[in-house]
Amino acid sequence: MVSVFRRPGFIISTIIVLFFLVLGYLGNINAISRMYVSNGTDLMYYIGIGLAMAIIMSYAGYVSFGQAVFVGIGSFSTGYVLVLMNRSNIISYLAKIGSGGRISNTMLAVYFTESLLLAITISVFIAVVVGYAVLRLRGAFFAISTIGLDYVVMYLVKYITKTRSPFGGEELLNPSMGLTDMTFYWMHFILFIITIYVAYFVKISKFGYGLAAIREDEDAAEIMGVNTFRYKIYAFALSGILASFWGIAEAFRKSYSIGYFKLDKSIIMLVENVVGGIGSFIGPIIGSIIYYLLEWSFLTTVGQWTLVILGATVVVVVAFFPEGIVGLLKKRFPRLRKWLE
């Protein structure tokens, strides 16, 4: 067996990580590179949610319409830690006495870890308890049951927020922490490294092959001795944990809002996977990059027309690459096949 470190997927993910590392260091040079820092932060978020979705959808073949529930849980955890625990005065105070009106790295790390722990706990709990019931379903039924899951959690979270916060149930406003966009960038970067390598090692591990077997033929996999039910629950929980990371990252940067639970966020995660191509590790990454760049470039050039043009582009792309970009590349350029794992 080829050493893990020489496998193409590992090399590609390392290249991507290095790219973001370099971008992060270049970000400090001048104002224009700062622009790309902000875009890079968004891009990491898009790739991150795409890969989180990939574990359940692309690897295991289970399409989930409600994966945004975990993004929502992540952002709510941050909102809870920063705002609902009634610490916002303390945080703002720390920001004022700290150097340059910024809270210290230690305190930031404490809040960050707290959010992580809270989000992971809730995500795993939901994924295991609800997954135990709904992962018996297949295909469209599973997909729709996750919508149910998403909205149940969303409305419960909303009720909690509404009764506890002065801002109503829709959003929580972060206290001023004096953080710069570079801080947010590195916070995203840490989560990005975790996400991309976890997603990759899952893909090439025995667990990943088990998931692939489930995707191709679940009954056959069961007969071959794969404990399909347990594998599916693991995949669902892992996907949930990774998705919740990105909720945390976003909420630190932009404050919590109920919008992270909405159906369209799940659909974006799904679209990234389908555009890239189902069944591969590279697919969701390519899909996320293309989706993000399309959306951003339309937004800054055609303004109000963005949604119309984006929608039309999606229709055209699907009509001509039904198997996703990776499927198309594999068909057209067989030599690339070993790089597109």
């Binding site: 104002a31 875009n39 976003e250 919008g259």
Partner: peptide, 30 residues
């Protein structure tokens, strides 16, 4: 919300605006 941050970043860094006017609504302003 997901678009606001990057667009303000673009306004400040690429378009080099001198002053900012906030978006409508409290959530987007935050």
């Amino acid at each position: 919300k997901s678009q606001v941050t990057s667009l303000y970043s673009r306004l400040i860094t690429t378009d080099k605006v001198d002053f900012l006017i906030a978006p409508y609504s409290s959530g987007l302003t935050a």
